[in-house]
Amino acid sequence: MADKPRILFCHCNYAKVVPEEVKAGVLKSLCKSGQAFEAVADLCEMAARRDPALKRLAAGEEPVKIAACYPRAVKWLFGGCQAPLNAAHTEVVNMRELSAVDAAAAMLDESVTPNLPEDGSVAAVEGEKKI
């Protein structure tokens, strides 16, 4: 139980960059699961306000799973507010790229695959990259 990840869901309120059906699907799955979780309206807005709640959300020794957008963006939304996430224990599930089913499954999977970028190295990207 102690190693069960904490769950944080970002509703990305103020833009349509996360597909509505993905946000709704993930939220529905979390609500059905009976798991405790934190839901925030918009991590960007919290970062803009330098909301002290970001420190609360980043604190603690437990692994954390965050349903939001790109891991690099999430890392620095927290990092820019002096609320650094623990890279060794944090997995960001990207709702901009995943389907609702895949994102929900990733959030409810108790194993954590840390995926915050650890340095500024250029990613190895194969094939045509979308711009």
């Binding site: 139980m1 069960k4 904490r6 769950i7 944080l8 509703h11 309120n13 709704a24 939220l27 529905k28 979390l30 609500c31 699961s33 009976g34 798991q35 405790a36 979780f37 934190e38 839901a39 925030v40 309206a41 918009d42 807005e45 919290m46 002290p52 709640a53 420190k55 609360r56 959300l57 604190a59 603690g60 437990e62």
Partner: peptide
């Protein structure tokens, strides 16, 4: 739960759903 959460989130609130497992620690807010 879904409709309550969705409405609160759309209005900009941060919501902690108590349930099985840990949530973020309390602060002074």
């Amino acid at each position: 739960r879904v409709s309550t959460l969705t409405t609160l989130l759309e209005k900009g609130y941060a919501v902690t759903c108590a349930g099985e497992g840990a949530v973020a620690p309390a602060d002074d807010s």
